[in-house]
Nucleic acid binder design. Structure first.
Lengths: 152, 152
DNA sequence: TTCCTTAAGGAGTTTTTTGTCCGAATTATA
DNA sequence: TATAATTCGGACAAAAAACTCCTTAAGGAA
């Protein structure tokens, strides 16, 4: 309803990495297994997050990905600005290029406060906190494997 | 950020048709020109809206599309359930198949109230009202043509 | 009846997103 | 130094979304 798969994978992976002991690189393969996401595709996303400075990567034995120092408090908005592009917050729900208070589409004034709530929400959620929530065991980062589900 | 192009075109077209005198069919070509969207693509969307009972279509001279009798109070939610699919309201923002209060993703309880606002908003907006808003001239259904913009 | 106009419908194309494969570079360790 | 494990990077493939083209059917009017 709102996010591309790429954004979803990026957020899931970042939260997962944030749940792991800092300084111990996490393998792409392990993340992909854990999230049940295509490994080769995830690798591209992680590479991109490295280039944008959210992650550090290490090659060879004991390699993998770590949150870059100080990035534990990265907000989801910061992530989405990378994965969805810089216009993420600016778009008109009807797709108009120009849609402001002065030149509004008919949905503009209803949509605006809702959009602002989304923006506030994304600004307000940080990797660190989401990771802690996951660590309590009350929240899931991925669907349960089919094996764990009640038989159909 | 939220809607597919198909949904955007559908909503724009329905509002536009609702602004026109009822009973006088509107040409696909005229709608496409007015909204500045690809006519052949729009035609498919209008066809689909006919099949789903929102529009009536007429072929030949004096043909075109009309809002079906009684459909003036169609909500945007009804439209979106057709264009985005029946899971529109159900989806998890992280893409999990199963994400409920009991089996929640780490964003679930922040996202839920925002999603409910979106749903309420879509339930609350009806073609009739949106069409009237456009008729006041205060709101735009499409971008201004380049010719109307100040020179670059 | 004939002509013109319109939507219907099917097939195909293009673009974007998502996903795959493979060889090269890098690194720890035996 | 040799080996195995890992990311990097580029090219490629598949799937989905957006868009086009063309033929057919239907309806109104001369």
């Amino acid at each position: 309803m709102v996010l591309s798969r790429t954004s979803q994978y990026a957020i899931q992976a970042l939260i997962y990495i944030a749940t792991q002991p800092p300084g111990e690189p996490v393998l792409n393969r392990d993340i992909a297994d854990r999230l049940n996401v295509p490994a080769a595709y995830l690798a591209k996303i992680l590479q991109s997050l490295c280039k944008h400075g959210l992650l550090d990567s290490f090659r060879g034995r004991l390699g993998g990905f770590c949150l870059r120092e100080g990035m534990q408090r990265t907000s989801l908005m910061q992530v989405l600005l990378l994965t969805e592009g810089p216009d993420f917050t600016k778009s008109c729900i009807l797709g108009l290029k120009e849609c402001t208070d002065e030149t509004a589409c008919p949905m503009h004034f209803k949509w605006k406060p809702v959009k602002n709530k989304i923006i506030a929400m994304m600004n307000d959620m940080h990797l660190e906190d989401l990771a802690k929530a996951v660590q309590t065991g009350k929240y899931r980062l991925a669907d349960l494997p089919a094996a764990a589900l009640p038989a159909a």
